[in-house]
């Protein structure tokens, strides 16, 4: 039997119930508030921090230690080192990930061995080794491999198949050695991240792309990698931030244009320890905050077509179209003389 459904009913009174109390939360908040107050009190009143040394003037007529020339140089070095070694790491990492996924056993084994080696060796050890590699070769060049041996085979003395070469102490010193050490190590981690990203993409995607007549590299560049980026970007953000901090290891190469090394130098000259460390800490916080903002936008870019953010943008675009290409009706300047 079906009953005729009531179309309209009197709305009952809104519920007025006593909400559940959470005394535990209030205690926790109180404790945190006290701790926070103590921390702020410490920061602002303890003269040991010497804020003016950090921000304003660290010696007669000089800027605060955060902004002195050598420290800014070091900051630049840290940023460049992060940038270059991450570029090496990402490019090489993608190549190694692709090799690892290749049906060719030789390529995939080489990729596996690379990852195995560079993940096993600590970055600090790697940095020191690369600082000392120039012991192996006096010159490093580009050209025919094994040219001396080939020359000897045909009885030619001093056969030279090099197109150009430079002294290895010039190349494998300081900055470049540190950059290569960090980059090669990073590539091993990036390779694993990229591989996981590629493998997370449904097989049907590359199948559909292949069926359309795309080449293997087109499938990778246009279909698989752009989708894998969604999975790849967040852990890569972690890697970049870790790299910012790991650049301090190249002090052992040795590289001197590096943030932490420079602040330690100041520390050694002035015997002011804690403020120098705090200055380094503040710079690292600033760099990482900027990187997090960048990561947010990169993630949003590769999130196109997915989830709530993608849908919100789609709505915005629809509104734009409805309004004839503008988002805000006020920016036309209508009505203003």
């Amino acid at each position: 039997m079906t009953q005729p459904t009531q179309t309209e009913r009197a709305r009952p009174e809104a519920i007025k119930a006593v909400p559940v109390r959470h005394p535990g939360r209030w205690v926790a908040i109180a404790v945190l508030a006290v701790l926070g107050a103590m921390f702020l009190h410490l920061i602002f009143t303890n003269s040991g921090f010497r804020w003016s040394f950090i921000f304003l003037e660290y010696a007669e007529g000089k800027r605060g230690v955060m902004f002195t020339e050598p420290v800014l140089e070091g900051l630049r070095g840290t940023i460049l080192l992060t940038l270059f070694s991450m570029v090496i790491g990402i490019v090489l990492g993608i190549i190694i990930a692709i090799m690892r996924l290749s049906p060719n056993k030789v390529l995939s084994s080489v990729a596996w061995a690379y990852t195995w080696f560079f993940r096993a060796v600590p970055r600090l050890v790697l940095a020191i080794i690369f600082g000392n590699l120039n012991i192996l070769w006096t010159r490093i060049g580009f050209g025919l491999p094994f040219d001396k041996q080939i020359g000897a085979l045909f009885g030619i003395d001093n056969f030279d198949g090099q197109i150009f070469s430079i002294r290895s102490t010039d190349l494998l010193a300081g900055f470049v050695a540190g950059m290569i050490a960090l980059g090669l190590s990073e590539a091993a981690y990036m390779a694993e991240i990229v591989r996981a990203g590629i493998q997370s993409i449904d097989e049907g995607q590359s199948e559909a792309a292949v069926a359309l007549g795309m080449s293997r590299s087109q499938v990778l560049r246009r279909v698989v990698l752009p989708q894998a980026m969604r999975v790849i970007v967040p852990p890569t953000g972690n890697e970049v931030i870790a790299m910012v901090k790991d650049t301090s290891l190249v002090a052992y190469v040795p590289v001197t244009t590096e943030l932490f090394f420079q602040l330690q130098q100041v520390q050694a000259r002035t015997f002011v320890v804690l403020p120098c460390l705090v200055a380094a800490l503040i710079w690292y916080l600033i760099i990482c905050s900027v990187l997090m903002v960048v990561q947010h936008f990169v993630e949003r870019h590769f999130g196109k077509g997915y989830g709530a953010a993608g849908k919100a943008r789609q709505r915005l675009r629809a509104i734009q179209v409805e309004q004839g290409g503008r988002v805000t009706p006020t920016d036309t300047g209508e009505g203003t003389p």
Binding site: D202, A208, G213
Partner: peptide, 19 residues
């Protein structure tokens, strides 16, 4: 790949490119 260009295929699970 060139041959596949003239053979269209439609899959059970669509396989559109979501990005």
């Amino acid at each position: 790949a060139k041959q596949r260009q003239s053979i269209g295929m439609v899959f059970q699970r669509f396989n559109l490119f979501p990005h």
